[in-house]
Design a protein around this nucleic acid. Structure first.
Lengths: 131, 131
DNA sequence: CTTGACCTTCCAGTTGGTGGAACCTCTATA
DNA sequence: TATAGAGGTTCCACCAACTGGAAGGTCAAG
């Protein structure tokens, strides 16, 4: 199957699929005309990548997950640990974003938001903390 | 003042400060020996950048904020709008992360996490959705 | 006079792709 | 059979926002 069809089936752009080949995540065979030829198993790998990337795993984590997937003697504990580590990462990010949000919205609330130059947001950024 | 001292006072690494100069965010003068020479006003700008970057504004947004800061006839509404837009962005990100977190933790919860190969996380990534 | 800290420039790499140019190949239709 | 258009190929450059490292110049202290 050509790259276009593989793209449709995996929901990944052709450019991304070529990129994944460049970094050795998928290795399609080639036809006589030089076109890439994707087997159902290649497409399966691409879908695996699409799904794991959309869940926030990095490329290197996807590589690890693929090798765990291929290893039929893998311990499920290894995969679970990676997933839980990812959950902890997400928690950290959410926490950080919430704190950011709080600071920014407090600043915005204290700003009149009119056509006058007086602005507590700018003052805060500039380090002019007036009460 | 040398770049090292400016770095300390602004809490930005020297590399970052040089980078900010390259993209015309700050323009220190030079000494006879070629060393950069930061004025208190330069350091003030660097601190402004440090603060606004840490609040999640992009470089281009920081550039805009700096020009608003410099414009003493700015409308505070402009700054407030930017801050509120940023808050909305943060809200979107938090929402996305929460949904991701939910999916991942559900997957992890359904995984035994033992030394056996059976693993619902991998199965899900592979698209083998068995009930 | 040397050592070490600090400064300079320049180039490359990071992450995960995306856009574009130049060119080749296949298929359908006039 | 000529040709148009869709889709394939490679390669190179670019995005954000830095960071690391090499090679070399400068300064202050002992």
């Amino acid at each position: 199957m050509n790259i276009g069809e593989a793209a449709k089936q995996s929901e990944l752009p052709p450019k991304t699929i070529r990129f994944y080949e460049e970094i050795d995540l998928v290795k399609p065979s080639r036809l006589g005309n030089g076109y890439r030829d994707y087997s159902p198993s290649d497409v399966h790998t691409l879908r695996f990548l699409q799904r794991s990337r959309s869940l926030g795993f990095t490329i290197e984590e996807c590589r690890l997950l693929l090798s765990l997937y291929a290893d039929d003697r893998r311990a499920s504990a290894d995969v679970k640990a990676l997933a839980n580590q990812k959950v902890a990462e997400i928690d950290r990010k959410i926490k950080e974003l919430r704190s950011l949000r709080k600071t920014l919205s407090t600043l915005a609330e204290n700003c009149h938001g009119n056509d006058k130059p007086d602005c507590p947001i700018i003052d805060d950024l500039a380090g002019e903390h007036r009460q």
